[in-house]
Deep mutational scan, measured.
Amino acid sequence: SADYSSLTVVQLKDLLTKRNLSVGGLKNEWVQRLIKDDEES
């Protein structure tokens, strides 16, 4: 899986927004959300 934890907050928020995922919570929660989205898609 991609190394989301190395991305900036701005990059992570951009990815979350593009995938229609929530940008609520902490940075590590966003990373988990993106990883989960990868596994489900």
Rank of each mutant, 00 (worst) to 15 (best):
L26D: 15
V31A: 03
K18N: 09
W30R: 02
S1A: 13
S1P: 13
D38V: 03
E29T: 06
I35T: 08
L21P: 06
L15W: 03
K27W: 11
N28M: 10
N20E: 06
K27F: 13
G24I: 13
E39R: 09
S1K: 14
Y4T: 00
L21K: 02
G25R: 00
K13T: 07
V31W: 02
I35F: 06
L15R: 01
A2W: 13
G24Q: 15
S6V: 08
S22T: 06
Q32K: 09
S1C: 10
N28I: 11
V23P: 06
L16G: 00
T17H: 09
V31M: 05
W30S: 00
E39C: 14
R33E: 04
I35A: 05
E40Q: 12
L12F: 00
K36I: 07
R19I: 05
D37Y: 15
D14F: 10
D38P: 04
L7R: 02
S6N: 10
I35M: 12
D38N: 04
S41P: 07
S5Q: 10
Q11S: 04
L16I: 03
V23I: 13
E39H: 12
R33F: 04
T17R: 14
V23D: 08
R19N: 05
V31C: 05
L21I: 06
L21F: 01
W30E: 06
Y4P: 01
V31N: 01
R33T: 05
E40Y: 10
S1E: 09
V23T: 13
N20L: 07
L34T: 00
L34W: 02
L7S: 01
A2R: 15
S41Y: 10
L34M: 01
E29K: 04
N20F: 07
K13R: 13
G24T: 12
E39V: 09
L15T: 03
G25S: 02
L7F: 10
L16D: 01
V9I: 13
K27D: 04
S1R: 09
K27N: 04
N20I: 03
V9D: 13
L15G: 00
V10H: 13
V9W: 11
L16M: 05
R33L: 07
G24F: 07
A2I: 15
Y4S: 01
L7H: 04
L16P: 00
R33H: 04
V10G: 11
L34G: 00
Q11G: 03
L21V: 04
S6K: 14
S6R: 11
K13M: 14
Q11N: 03
G25Q: 03
R19V: 05
K13H: 10
G25M: 04
N20P: 02
D3F: 14
L15Y: 04
V10N: 15
T17N: 09
L26H: 15
R33D: 03
G25K: 01
V10Y: 10
S41V: 11
D37P: 00
L12Y: 00
E40A: 09
R19K: 06
L21S: 02
E39L: 14
R19T: 04
T17C: 13
L15N: 00
R33N: 04
K36D: 12
G24V: 14
G25P: 01
D14G: 07
S5W: 14
V31F: 04
S6L: 11
N28G: 10
A2H: 12
N28F: 12
T8V: 01
D38I: 04
V9T: 11
W30H: 04
L34A: 01
N28A: 13
S41I: 12
L26N: 15
V23L: 14
Y4F: 01
N20C: 11
A2D: 12
T8A: 04
V10K: 13
R19E: 05
R33S: 06
V10M: 13
E40R: 13
Y4N: 00
E29Y: 03
K27A: 10
D37G: 05
L26A: 14
I35C: 07
I35G: 03
N28C: 10
N28H: 14
A2F: 15
L12C: 07
L7E: 01
T8H: 02
E40L: 12
S6A: 08
W30D: 03
Q11D: 08
I35Q: 10
V9P: 07
S5D: 10
T17P: 02
G25E: 03
V9H: 09
N20Y: 06
D3P: 11
L7A: 02
V9M: 14
L16R: 00
R33Q: 06
